[in-house]
Computed example of a mutant assay.
Amino acid sequence: GKFIMTASSDTTILIWTPKGEVLASINTNQMNNAYAMVSPCGRFVASCGFTPDVKVWEVCFSKNGEFREVARAFELKGHTAGVHSFAFSNDSRRMATVSKDGTWKFWDTDVEYKKQQDPYLLLTGKCEVTEPCRIALSPDARVVAVSSGTDIVVYNTRRGEEEERFLGVHGQCITDLAFDINSRYLVSCGDRAIRVFHNTAGHRAVVEEMETMLKKTANKATRERLEQQISSAHKALAAIYGKKH
């Protein structure tokens, strides 16, 4: 809660104190600001627009909490057309982007940007793009959701595979998309309604990770703990789908 960010439709981003004083002004040089946000960790602000990239800045404060500067952190480059939107994981170590070029991308942003290290592209997936288009990344970075028009498609981030497809979710175009802080639910809004979905893809990703760990461990106590967790996760999925377990 150290600062507030606002973005106008031109190329201006302003950083404010909670009391309404302007700390800094950023020119994004993206011809327009299509989307902008503050990272969940509170360290970064980012924007995308007409250009095929996402620009990220660090808002720097001293140890005693005084504002120092807004410094360039890194850029996500690789799309061939303007970026519609982007999202951070909860710790800002991963990001996801969706572009007019018909692809979504998953990035490793856990880099030493102060030493000019660039983010790593982990995955590229194809998707339908109908404006308005939004992307959401689960806080644990296991799942990506892309909204296009009134539809939502959910993908895993291990292989980029489609997991779920929800058609005609709203009577009007979806205007925003987000996961809850615990990665249990996906929420969308568009018309006068808010829709909430179980993040079943996230549950399946957790099961897959635990099954992989189970194959690699020889420790009896660890195996028993993993087997119990896998069983509980399967029961949770069965309950969501209304199946007996």
Results as ranks from 00 to 15, higher is better:
27 N>F: 05
26 I>Y: 10
7 A>V: 01
50 F>M: 15
22 V>A: 12
31 M>C: 11
16 W>A: 05
45 V>A: 02
40 P>V: 02
40 P>T: 06
29 N>T: 03
33 N>C: 07
27 N>A: 11
27 N>D: 15
48 C>W: 03
17 T>F: 09
7 A>E: 00
42 G>F: 01
9 S>L: 15
37 M>H: 02
38 V>C: 11
6 T>E: 03
25 S>T: 11
41 C>P: 00
23 L>T: 14
31 M>N: 14
32 N>G: 07
12 T>M: 15
7 A>W: 00
18 P>C: 10
12 T>P: 09
36 A>M: 08
36 A>R: 07
27 N>V: 08
24 A>T: 06
8 S>N: 13
16 W>E: 01
6 T>D: 06
39 S>V: 07
22 V>I: 10
19 K>Y: 07
42 G>H: 01
22 V>H: 06
37 M>T: 10
6 T>H: 02
34 A>C: 12
36 A>G: 14
14 L>P: 03
42 G>C: 05
23 L>P: 10
13 I>E: 05
6 T>R: 04
50 F>P: 02
6 T>P: 02
51 T>N: 13
31 M>G: 08
37 M>N: 09
27 N>W: 07
48 C>M: 02
25 S>H: 07
13 I>C: 05
19 K>V: 08
35 Y>T: 04
38 V>I: 12
37 M>C: 09
19 K>R: 14
45 V>T: 04
16 W>I: 03
33 N>K: 10
39 S>R: 12
34 A>Q: 15
7 A>C: 01
10 D>M: 09
21 E>I: 09
20 G>I: 13
17 T>D: 04
6 T>M: 06
18 P>I: 11
19 K>T: 09
25 S>Y: 06
21 E>V: 14
41 C>F: 03
22 V>Q: 13
28 T>G: 04
46 A>R: 00
22 V>G: 07
14 L>M: 14
31 M>V: 13
9 S>G: 14
32 N>S: 12
29 N>S: 10
36 A>C: 10
43 R>Y: 05
48 C>Y: 03
24 A>H: 15
31 M>F: 13
35 Y>G: 01
13 I>N: 11
7 A>I: 00
47 S>C: 06
18 P>E: 09
6 T>S: 14
28 T>V: 05
37 M>P: 00
35 Y>N: 02
45 V>Q: 04
46 A>V: 00
31 M>K: 13
33 N>S: 08
